[in-house]
Design a protein around this nucleic acid. Structure first.
Lengths: 167, 167
DNA sequence: AACCCTCTTTAAACTGTTTAAATCATCGCT
DNA sequence: AGCGATGATTTAAACAGTTTAAAGAGGGTT
């Protein structure tokens, strides 16, 4: 892969912005987090696409696997997105046949979402895809480190959710 | 917030999917990572939007601050996106006046990207936005924990980049 | 019965992302 | 020197995700 063949020929790099860069490095957590997530989404997508799912939809499936018949609003809150986002996602997934909307018969304002048979069939695949992606992502880390990472990420996530909720 | 008023009235939950859910929990790293990143992007956006930037563009700015005159392809690789994505992003940012494209005079196939004056003016703001978001995200964590988190995230990111590169 | 509140959806406007095809310049070989 | 292979960039087309603002629909309360 002769990538550095010609493009690197001239050694004239900028050199006097070190202070700016130093400050920019405080930005690391945000960048690395977003970047890691982007890669995770890409990798997860590859494993998911075979079952007709997109990354982002799997969260809905898992939430429903845990508690079937959640409302759209509850799903949105649980996944940390706004209601219209969830409406669109649900719409797509309903069109794909993985779940279905049904009005609650006690309160017609509520629309509850249920997994369909085909949807439930995908759960296994989703679990495997997640498992596989996680194994890929944590290569070289000990179990303890993975647990630590999860713990820290949960704290960060919870902090951020709180921050974004404080509109 | 009487959220459980009516919707929870019926206690008929599914009960035999416990194994599936158990497996689904292995999926935690992927979900929590993506979710944390989503929140991070949202929070970062709020701090960035004042300077006319969107989350996702800041990475380009920082990369150029470190090494001005990168090619489109190098930027794409550095940020872990595909070339066309970078082309669009660069196009938007050029239209906004934060950077400019200039053909390399040694190799006319290459288009190098440079920060403009206004672009360089934003670096300070970007650094501050990142810093602020990071402070928000790591509330309650010790410095050491933050360093640990960064270290682990770098490993994960590097693993995932390697995995996605292996097309 | 009227009014208000809550939930859901629609609408509009973006950014981000990918794959595949098209463009274009350079490089190597005959 | 010309010609084809190579490589970089951009264009095109098609989706997903996201947000804010507004509209639609039901319920509950006074």
């Amino acid at each position: 892969m002769g990538k550095k063949s010609k493009a690197e020929k001239k050694g004239k790099n900028g050199k006097k912005r070190d202070e700016i860069v130093a400050e920019a490095h405080d930005h690391d957590l945000a960048s690395i987090l977003v970047q890691a997530a982007r890669s995770m989404r890409t990798v997860l997508s590859r494993n998911l696409v075979e079952s007709g799912l997109y990354a982002g939809q799997d969260g809905v499936m898992l939430a429903l696997a845990e508690t079937d018949g959640l409302t759209a609003g509850a799903l949105a809150a649980k996944l940390g997105v706004k209601a219209p986002t969830m409406t669109r996602t649900i719409g797509r997934m309903e069109a794909q046949g993985f779940l279905e909307r049904r009005p609650d018969k006690d309160d017609a304002r509520l629309t509850k979402v249920y997994l369909t048979g085909p949807g439930r069939d995908r759960l296994q695949t989703i679990a495997e895809a997640g498992h596989h992606s996680e194994k890929l992502a944590t290569r070289g880390l000990t179990d303890k480190q993975v647990r630590t990472l999860l713990k820290l990420l949960r704290v960060v996530d919870s902090n951020l959710q709180a921050a974004r909720a404080a509109d």
